[in-house]
Design a protein around this nucleic acid. Structure first.
Length: 778
DNA sequence: GCGAGGTAATTACCT
DNA sequence: ACAGGTAATTACCTCGCG
């Protein structure tokens, strides 16, 4: 009977007067039955590497004496440390409490050189030692049944779980939750402001509102509803950031228990800010929004717009708050119902992806979404190294050391026609695989064997055997290749969508591998390894650029890291691609062809019109979140006209027309709002910036800001620095807006940025506009 | 005291 | 808390000048 793992939690319990560690696996079997599988066989353990002068047998005896009363077993085992065999002592404790005590005793024990595994969470250690992955199907030996108080399911005691065949996840009971609290002025405060209502959707049923005379009733109803529906999956928005914390504090005020877990537990604050509900998967969709770079404003509405599933007007939280107090409560609730439906539709787009990311990385679905790219790679590598019998170093932060990264070519400014973009496919991963770049293959200076030598930096890597990183990345690259092949063979449909999601999950981990190697907190951090990869990368792109220009006479217009922008001349491009692949042994692809492309003198900025008539904007203000909408729109339109027609005067006229419209007051407050992030706590700012100064003012009025929040401001008429004239966008009075500021500091600069390379000067924007403007073009 | 010119602080982007 | 490379604005400092 296969079981699909929903959630896992680790408990230390006393059963029949014996204390033991238990792993509770919350599962669904293939008949849709919910079951808890309890494995009581897990004993926490560490690996201890004795210092080189220690006598192994004596050392073991010493350990036994030191840890008397805490041990289950002590034995010498063969492991590998950076590929070389080593003998270490496996110390198995009776239970996790004993482990805590034991580690304390060991902290000053003589002869210990290294302790391994002590910083890996028990549930993860359990999973990796048994080669289990969450969000997969498993099988196990049933050895009996147990009771867990408050758990309404059958609980089976198991041994020897193992992964069974890969297939689709079972159908899950889903609950979507949006909680609302309001406050007349400022951020709602859980000690004073009640939960106003909660919008809920269950599975695919009609959304509804949980309402009540006070929030004790509301929270009570929520608890009862969760108990009744008993969802496997709870999806919310900002639930990790504040909602569950807020609900918890309101529950406390109302003297009720926020029993939302499957065992009746309250939400638990987990690692890295994740809130877990025992036995359920809790997804905060905001965590996914965080990873979407194109999404400037991390709101549910913006995310829905990004995915093309939003219709109608968005109402921002401040307006919603005002509506609530203006007694337009029914409209607020109606809007909330729409939001909860959108939440559900968005989650469906990410379900497959999250399942695959979870089973690839080895973290439960909710935790893997919250985990940073670095921790996702860490999860993947930890599993992989366990399979290779490698010791898993503890995470320690090494001192920061700067090293050289990628190369960016200086662009040829101006308007170009017919430009091809060539991209090396997964350049860094392929460099790692090709040159066996890894901490366990790096050669010491006195070592002699066949080696790959990195250019410039001259670090050497053994040709064989395959290193930790090479084998890890090859698995990903090969899996991805297979999936891509299958995708090509499939028609559009759910099967293909799921494969695409799997491919995305693999890509996310593969792309972060290089970064992980240069991360000072990574378990296998080694500067030389990261440095060698970028050195080979620079060498690769420079060689390719030389082939293009010297052998094929193709002008290289620009290039960044793993891409080359070259003149597009028919078959010559194919010959170039062949030559590059031949001589460098790396795959390079024709990514895009631009009919026209504009470069300024700046790197990392260009605008192109593809042969499919798509406008690609890169780096410019128009794609940045910290310029006002009006200026961004002007820049985009000017570029669109310039690239579509190639007519500079036309572009000038469009610019002037939009400038005139602006001068005559044809804009809204939102058009001129500038949004900037607070990247650190307010107290830590050294410089006076407009958004910081506004956040400080608002703090005094009862607003609370978290790191990462965005502050919108508008610049008003008057004297002095901008930070003195900036006003919170919601408090702005349109008649006081400093139109001149916006013209000289926002609109004119973004126009000139893209028109100066084609010879336009500021004076040409100043004379009144004539004919041939915007209307004619659009 | 004032303006020119440089620089630190800050944010957000690219690959 | 994945990496380095880059552009750009604003506040603020230094310096020369009167």
């Amino acid at each position: 009977m296969p079981y699909w793992i929903i959630d896992i939690n680790h408990e230390v319990v006393i059963r029949e007067n014996v204390k033991r560690d238990e792993m509770w696996l919350w599962t669904i079997d293939d008949k849709g039955e919910r079951l808890v599988l309890v494995d009581g066989s897990f004993k926490p353990f560490v690996h201890i590497e004795p210092s080189s002068d220690a006598q192994l047998e004596n050392f073991v005896e010493g350990l036994k004496r030191e840890l008397v009363g805490l041990l289950d077993d002590v034995r010498i085992v063969e492991k590998r440390k950076l590929g070389r065999p080593v003998k270490v002592v496996e110390v198995v404790f009776k239970d996790s409490d004993a482990k805590e005590k034991g580690l304390e005793r060991l902290s000053d024990f003589r002869g210990v050189s290294n302790v391994y595994n002590s910083d890996i969470r028990p549930s993860l250690l359990y999973f990796i030692t048994r080669d289990l992955k969450p969000s997969t199907w498993i099988d196990a030996k049933i050895i009996g049944s147990l009771k867990i108080s408050n758990v309404p399911y059958e609980v089976r005691e198991i041994r020897d779980p193992r992964v069974v065949e890969v297939r689709d996840p079972p159908s899950l009971r889903e609950m979507y939750v949006l909680a609302f609290a309001f406050r007349k002025i400022g951020t709602p405060n859980p000690d004073e402001d009640p939960i106003a209502f909660i919008a809920v959707a269950v599975d695919n049923n009609e959304p509804f509102i949980i309402d009540g005379d006070n929030d004790k009733e509301i929270i009570d109803q929520l608890i009862k509803l969760v108990a009744k529906i008993d969802p496997d999956l709870v999806v919310g928005w900002e639930t990790n950031r504040w909602v569950f914390d807020y609900l918890g504090r309101r529950a406390k005020v109302n003297k009720i228990r926020l029993a939302l877990g499957r065992n009746g537990d309250e939400p638990r604050a987990g690692v890295y800010g994740h809130v877990s509900l025992v036995g359920r998967i809790h997804i905060d969709l905001r965590d996914i929004a965080e990873g979407i770079a194109e999404l400037k404003m991390k709101t549910l509405e913006e995310m829905a717009i990004h995915h093309g599933i939003w219709s109608g007007e968005s109402i921002d939280l401040i307006d919603l708050n005002d509506m609530w107090f203006a007694n337009e409560r029914e409209s607020v609730k109606k809007y909330a119902l729409k939001l909860v439906d959108v939440l559900r539709r968005l989650w469906k787009l990410y379900f497959d992806y999250t399942v695959h990311l979870s089973s690839l990385v080895g973290y439960p679905m909710d935790y893997v979404l919250k985990a940073s790219p670095g921790h996702r790679v860490d999860g993947y590598i930890v599993y992989h190294s366990m399979k290779l019998n490698e010791l898993i170093p503890r995470k320690i932060e090494s001192p920061y050391e700067k090293y050289k990264g990628a190369i960016v070519f200086t662009p040829h400014p101006g308007l170009h026609s017919n430009v091809a973009v060539l991209d090396f496919a997964s350049m860094y991963p392929h460099i790692i695989a090709k040159y066996n770049v890894s901490p366990d293959t790096l050669m010491r200076s006195d070592e002699e064997s066949e080696a790959y030598v990195a250019p410039e930096v001259k670090h050497r890597f053994r040709v064989s055997p395959d290193g930790l990183y090479k084998s890890a990345i090859l698995k990903l690259l090969e899996a991805r290749k297979q999936i891509k092949k299958r995708i090509k063979e499939l028609p559009e449909g759910p099967e293909r969508t799921a494969l695409e999601a799997q491919e995305r999950a693999i890509k996310v981990v593969a792309n972060a591998m290089y970064g992980y190697m240069g991360w000072v907190s990574s378990r296998w951090y080694m500067k030389e390894v990261a440095e060698a990869i970028t050195a080979w990368g620079r060498n690769t792109i420079i060689t390719a650029a030389e082939l293009a220009s010297k052998r094929f006479g193709l002008k290289v217009i620009y290039g960044d890291t793993d891409s080359l922008f070259v003149e597009y001349r028919g078959e010559v491009i194919n010959k170039l691609i062949e030559a590059i692949e031949d001589e460098l042994g790396m795959e390079i692809k024709l990514e895009t062809v631009y009919k026209r492309i504009l470069f300024t003198e700046a790197k990392k900025r260009y605008a192109g019109l593809t042969i499919n008539n798509e406008l690609d904007l890169t780096g410019f203000e128009a794609v940045r979140g910290d310029w006002c909408d009006y200026a961004k729109r002007v820049q985009e339109r000017v570029l669109s006209v310039l690239l579509n027609t190639g007519d500079v005067n036309y572009a000038i006229n469009v610019a002037k027309e939009m400038l005139e419209l602006f001068k005559s007051g044809n804009f809204t407050i939102k058009d001129v709002t500038i949004w900037k992030s607070l990247d650190k706590p307010l107290a830590e700012y050294k410089a006076r910036a407009p958004h910081v100064s506004i956040a400080l003012q608002l703090s005094k009025k009862g607003w609370r800001f978290k790191v990462g929040d965005k502050i919108g401001y508008v610049v008003m008429k008057g004297q002095g620095p901008i930070y003195e004239r900036a006003v919170f966008y919601a408090d702005a009075d349109k008649s006081m807006i400093d139109i001149d500021y916006y013209i000289t500091n926002q609109i004119i600069p973004v126009i000139l940025r893209v028109l100066e390379p084609v010879g336009v000067t500021e004076d040409q924007l100043m004379v009144k506009s004539t004919k041939g403007g915007l209307d004619q073009f659009f």
